[in-house]
């Protein structure tokens, strides 16, 4: 699904990604771990086609992101740190607009289904300006999923969510896994990561420092390995 070859990203004179090498198969759910400032969000931004690679190639579904960006964007859903929704619009208005630029058929239906799914039904017509952080994250999740992406990029999706919202999100991810969607999730939440992901990548200093799997739900082993790689001085390969 994704092939990243020698990806370097430089902003100004700062080199953020220093040669990422990565291959992710269709249907995999990959957790991306790493300390603050390691370059995880930057990697997702390149994959989401917000940022262009400085060097290296990235292909998604066999197509180069430099050449087929517009078509590929239809396949990719991105949930970044920021909510990417309009403050003065209600969830309904936001999803209607974003659905229309993703050319969704039967939009009305899809919007009400999504609002239901993220549990914002009571707030369908409230402007999101007044929303709490968790509610904002819920509408942001709905926005990222509106076109049923085959590749979903999640940047710390669990932050700010309450217990029921975490369950909603995990359920959504579970359903997408069943649909053979590929999911990349940046997270600092080892419990959730161990529960959801079947493969882990640790980014350190702009490189892939480790790539492994652990038995499902085994957060302790995951944390051990993370600590060993990030703090134990096992420098990026």
């Amino acid at each position: 699904m994704i092939e990243v070859n020698g990806l370097v990203k430089r902003i100004g004179d700062k080199t953020i990604l220093r040669g990422i090498q990565l291959k992710i198969n269709k249907g995999e759910t990959v957790g991306i771990l790493g300390s603050n400032g390691a370059g995880k969000s930057t990697l997702l931004k390149v994959l989401a086609m917000i940022m262009k690679p400085t060097f290296g190639t990235v292909t998604i579904a066999g197509q180069d992101i430099r050449k087929n960006a517009t078509a590929l964007k239809q396949m990719v859903g991105f949930l970044p740190h920021a909510s990417m929704v309009y403050d003065h619009f209600s969830p309904y208005e936001n999803l209607k607009f974003f659905g229309s630029i993703y050319h969704i058929p039967d939009l009305e239906l899809r919007v009400s289904e999504l609002i239901d799914q993220v549990g914002l039904k009571l707030f369908t017509h409230e402007p999101v300006r007044s929303f709490s952080r968790g509610m904002m994250q819920r509408i942001a999740i709905a926005r990222a999923m509106i076109h049923r992406p085959q590749l979903l990029l999640l940047d710390e999706p669990h932050t700010g969510l309450d217990q029921s919202a975490v369950e909603i999100l995990n359920q959504v991810i579970e359903e997408m896994k069943k649909d053979q969607a590929t999911i990349l999730m940046v997270t600092h939440d080892f419990m959730q990561a161990a529960k959801i992901c079947d493969r882990f990548i640790i980014i350190k200093g702009g490189r892939v420092a480790d790539d492994f799997s652990v038995a499902e739900g085994d957060a302790a082993i995951l944390y051990e390995r993370y600590k060993q790689v990030v703090e134990g001085g096992k420098a990026g390969c």
Partner: peptide, 12 residues
């Protein structure tokens, strides 16, 4: 809210 990025990642 970085909505400009939402426009940039849309397939338009």
């Amino acid at each position: 809210n970085d909505t400009i990025f939402a426009l940039n990642i849309a397939p338009i």
